[in-house]
Each structure stands twice: as structure tokens, then as C-alpha cells.
Write a protein that binds this DNA or RNA. Structure first.
Lengths: 337, 337
DNA sequence: TTGAAAGCGGTACCAG
DNA sequence: CTGGTACCGCTTTCAA
């Protein structure tokens, strides 16, 4: 007689006994396209319902793929991150995957141990949203038959699939917008984080400005936060020759920057100061801000991830760059007369 | 000779063969407190490193607990939700748990299937942040030895552990703050969502007002979003006798409300209008808002979840209510002369 | 269609 | 300390 203590999961064995059939019959009942007679199926389903049985997917994994996808992410409270996680989890779910979230710091050590966890749980794939894993570990994941998908990370990591937004385009367009608005003195608000995407936006903006013979005042006041944006504004407007056109590499920076430019320095936007952001977080559309920015097409990116997961062959060193979408609001003047 | 195709995970067997020891030796090497000679351990570790071996935690689960915790959540982009998920995942991780996120709609059907997933993956526990699962399903989880922890949900669900913030206190204190500021005409901005927490804040606020002989204008303009807050302001200030003291059951509502009150109706806060929110999302502290509100002590709540997980005995129908923390900022006048 | 048995990757127990 | 073996829960041959 089998132990019936309730502190344990119901197994197929128990269901079989109760239904008076074999374990195999139970298994077949819950396997698509297996042949079971209606009578058996009915008996099994009834017993399963009575006992509260649910197939153990973890045991199933010993023979097949796990359908587990790990999401390695840091700073989940950041609006753009939250949206990424949201969109990804729901699309992955729709594709029959289950998501494990590993909340990590962005330093290499933390990301490495996150990747190892991923291996421990036999995830079919790992999606990295934050930090940059060492190449050797990616190698290991690949050797274990695990896909690695990097989003907005440094590219050039062999074997991994890379997915990112076109940062160069954003830098270029931001300059175009500010120039067209007639801005004379350009500023760039970046952060002390050395993320590849952020660096790229900065680099291209500065180069494009140089190409037109303009210099750019660069301010990096701290991490990529609202507060750093505020701090940047204080540094910039506390002295003469402050810029009248600014590209913030992130919306969060932009919103902090706008708030103190307006409330502490009495500047009017866009009359005295034009601001361009990046990400199109929800707050950028709020009435107090109306920030002109570039949207990351998260849906498209998530779809691309799912596609990569479904056709593992496609990836392996591929790189897909997606165009950000300019979102016109009111923090930049229309073309100057 | 074993197949060495790289499209599969490395197993203990392979490591054993390469190291010239038994599977048991490999297992012991990776098990705390097992006895292995230094020589064997070294051989094993070396082989493991060479092959890129990682213990399969899923297989381990067949004998022990899974250490998997499922988080059932909807609206992850909402700042307060994002923070909850963030805090929970990192504390759970620190406690040696791994988090599976199930992104669901809040309707009962979706939550039910989420709970079933949870069972399929043998999660030790399920933490429900959104929606209300049917009692029968909670029963099933419990019968399978799985803990169910509900956060800010309707209580009275037997067997589950409940954790929530003291909504009544918030309603009461909000009224006190507005009265003390000398507000004469009270308003309440709620949403069309019928969540228990939201309803409770509303009920208590209205009752407390009634106890002092004051009536409250209630506005429910849509879901619990920034936009609904805006819409509520338009309805309220588009007519005479508009309130001069308002409790918004959520910060998001409050911020939308403030923006249109100020920018569309020219009201000054707190001179013409006092506003109190709830949640203390990051944006509430931004310079444009400076919203007086109540913070959900997320750290404490997450700690409580971990504690419940570590001592499963404690839970089972327990209910723990945590006091929200008043956060004074500038959207409410100090005590009226 | 059905049940018996093997095997997936690990751990725990046992004898040596 | 070590290797052999049984078993965890499930799916999949294989015979019947």
C-alpha cells in the first residue's frame, strides 16, 4: 500500500492504482497523440481529478527539452526593463515556454553565476538583458546545447545570438532633430555605466556633431537614473554657456534633467531648451514631460527571441539590429524658421 | 563509447568516464558534506571543468524539493509591481530559491491555469501577486504539498498564507491628513478594478469621512492607471464644487490626476488642491510631483515571504498585516493655521 | 489498446 | 573512501 500523506506531490503511480490501470495508461492519457481507449482515458481523468494530479514536467525533462528559458536581468525596476521582462515573459509563455528570472547585478561575476544556474536548471536557452557574460561561459552553454541570446549587449561574442536596437541611428537622428530646431550649443547627458549601447549612442552623436563642426558638452553624473539626470542639469546650468539642445541617452536621465532644468533653473522646454531621450518609457508620455524620444520596439524584439528559440539553427552568431521608432512629442521645437 | 555530440547536456556519467571513476564519485564531489578523497575530487573537478559539466538540478528534484518558487503576476510594468517582482526575486535568490515568473491576466481563469503550471513544475510554493485564485485550486496546491502565499489579495482563503498591507490605516490616515490641511470638499479617486485592497482603502476613507459628517465625491474613471487619473481630474474639475482634498487609491492615479489638475485646470498643489496617494512608487518622489503617500514596505513583505518559505509550518491560513509607512512630501499642506 | 520494463540524470544506501 | 545498485516520476519501446 502506498503512502498517502498529503505533504507530497501526487504521482502517476497513485493515479494508476486508483484508476485500476497501469502507469503507462496514465502517461498516455496525458500525452498528445497516444492511443488510449475512451474508457481508460475516462477512468484515468477521473482518478487524476479526484487526486489532484498534475504531470511532473521536471521528470519529463530527463528525456526531452525542458522548455525553460532563463532571463538574466538587473535593475528590473527601471521602466524599460520592467517592460522588457513583461513582454518577454508573456510572449515566451504564449510559445509554450516557462520563464525563470535571474535577478543579477551587472558585474561579470554575478552574470557568470547566473549563467551557471541556467545550466543547472537545464534551460533550453538563456536570454541576457543585463551585463556581459564572459565568452568562455557562453562557450560552455553552447557546448551544453543551450542557446544564448544577448539583447542590447556588446556584440562580437561568438556563438551567441545578438539582438539589439540601432543605437547609431538614434544618435544620428537626435543630432538632426536638435539641429533642425536651431539649437546652437549641444549637450549630451550620458551615465557612468559603460554599457555598449549607451556608449554607441554617445559616440555617434558626438561624431555626427563633429562632422558638422559642432562640439558637444558631455556630462556623466552617475548611474543611468532620474537622479543623475537632475545632477547633470545642476552641473550644466550652474555655469555660463549652458547648452540649448540636449540628447539624453536614456529617458530616465532626460526626465530628471527636464525637471531640474525647469523647476530649479526656470528654463522653458522647448522654448529655451530642447531635449531628446531614448527608450520611450511610459513616463515620457506623461503630461508633465511630453518627451520626444526613440521607442525600442519591444514587441518585435520579443518576437525575434521567440523565433530564435523555435528555430535554434538560425542563431549561432547571428546579429539582428532593429530600428528604434522616433516618437515625436513636445520637448523639441519644430523646424526653426 | 559514448556519443559526444555537443547538442546535449553533459552528464555525470560522462564526467565519471573521463575521470576514470564511478558516477557516485562524481555525485559525491558535488554534494556538500560527502566523503571523497582529495585525489578523486581533483580528478572529477578537472574532468567536469573540461567537459563543462553542471549538476542537473531538475533530476535532483525527483528525490528532494525543487527549490522553485512561482510568482504569479499581472501588470508587471506598473512601477509598484516591478518593484515587488524585483525585491522578491532577489530575496528568494538569496535564500537559495529559483523564481519562475508566470505573467497572467488577473481574471480567475488565467490565474487558475497559472496555478496549474506551478504544479506541473513542482514548485515548492506559489506566490500570488495578482488576481484571486479559486479556493478549490488552492486546495489542490496544498494537497500536493505546495505552499500558497497571497500578497495583498482577498483574505479568507483557507490554507493559504496571506500577507498584506494595512489598507484601513491608509484610508484613515489619508482622511486625517486632508482634514488637518483644512480641506473642505473631499474627493476619492479609485479605479474600476474591484481589487480587495483598493476597495478597502476606499471604504475606510469614506466611512471615516462620514464619521466626521463629511461626504466624499467618488470618481472611478477606468483601470488603475495614470490615464484614469487624468480622466478623473477632467470629470471633477469640469464642474462646480470640485474637491480641494483628494485621496487617490494609487500613486499612478494620483500622478495623472495632479498633472491634469495643474496643467489643464491651472490648479496649484498644495495651495488649491491637496493630494494623497498610495504605494510610494519612484515617480512619486520626482521633482514634478513630490507626492505625499504611503509606502508599501516591500522589503519587509519579501522577508516575510522568505520566512514563510523556510518555515512552511508557520503559514497555513495565517494572515500578516504590515503597516504602510507615511511618506511626507509636498502635495498636502501642513496643518492649517 | 494494454502492461511490463528500460532508461533519463542524480542521490542515497550498502557492502567492500 | 569507493563502486554497485535501487529508486525518484515519467515516457517510450516492445510484446502480448
Amino acid at each position: 500500500m502506498r503512502d498517502t500523506r498529503s505533504r507530497t506531490f501526487v504521482t502517476a503511480q497513485m493515479v494508476a492504482e486508483r484508476a485500476g490501470v497501469s502507469r503507462s495508461a496514465v502517461s498516455r492519457t496525458f500525452t498528445d497523440g497516444a492511443s488510449v481507449s475512451d474508457a481508460t482515458r475516462r477512468k484515468v481523468l477521473e482518478a487524476a481529478a479526484a487526486l489532484g494530479y498534475h504531470v511532473n514536467h521536471l521528470a519529463r525533462v530527463l528525456r526531452e527539452r525542458s522548455n525553460i528559458v532563463c532571463l538574466v536581468v538587473a535593475d528590473m525596476t527601471t521602466p524599460i526593463r520592467a517592460r522588457m521582462v513583461d513582454v518577454l515573459t508573456s510572449k515566451l509563455q504564449a510559445a509554450g515556454k516557462i520563464t525563470m528570472v535571474i535577478n543579477t547585478e551587472t558585474d561579470t561575476g554575478s552574470v557568470s553565476s547566473a549563467l551557471k544556474q541556467t545550466l543547472n536548471y537545464r534551460a533550453d536557452a538563456t536570454v541576457v538583458l543585463s551585463g556581459t557574460p564572459p565568452a568562455s561561459l557562453i562557450e560552455t552553454c553552447l557546448a551544453n546545447g543551450q542557446q544564448v541570446i544577448l539583447i542590447n549587449r556588446d556584440d562580437g561574442l561568438v556563438g551567441s545570438s545578438n539582438l539589439g536596437v540601432d543605437n547609431a541611428m538614434a544618435g544620428r537622428e537626435a543630432l538632426f532633430l536638435l539641429r533642425r530646431a536651431g539649437c546652437q550649443r549641444l549637450g549630451l547627458i550620458a551615465s557612468t555605466a559603460r554599457t555598449a549601447s549607451l556608449m554607441e549612442r554617445k559616440r555617434v552623436f558626438v561624431e555626427a556633431a563633429a562632422a558638422e563642426g559642432m562640439s558637444v558638452t558631455i556630462t556623466e553624473a552617475g548611474p543611468t537614473t532620474y537622479q543623475s539626470g537632475q545632477e547633470a542639469a545642476r552641473r550644466l546650468f550652474g555655469r555660463s554657456q549652458a547648452p540649448d539642445g540636449v540628447f539624453c541617452v536614456t529617458d530616465l536621465l532626460a526626465l530628471g534633467f527636464m525637471d531640474t532644468a525647469r523647476l530649479e533653473f526656470g528654463l522653458r522646454i522647448p522654448e529655451d531648451l530642447c531635449v531628446v531621450g531614448f527608450d520611450d518609457i511610459e513616463q515620457a508620455g506623461w503630461q508633465s514631460y511630453q518627451l520626444t524620444t526613440f521607442a525600442q520596439p519591444l514587441d518585435i524584439m520579443a518576437d525575434a527571441v521567440v523565433e530564435l528559440l523555435l528555430n535554434p539553427g538560425l542563431g549561432d552568431g547571428s546579429r539582428r539590429i532593429i530600428e528604434p521608432i522616433p516618437v515625436w512629442r513636445r520637448s523639441v521645437r519644430p523646424a526653426a524658421g
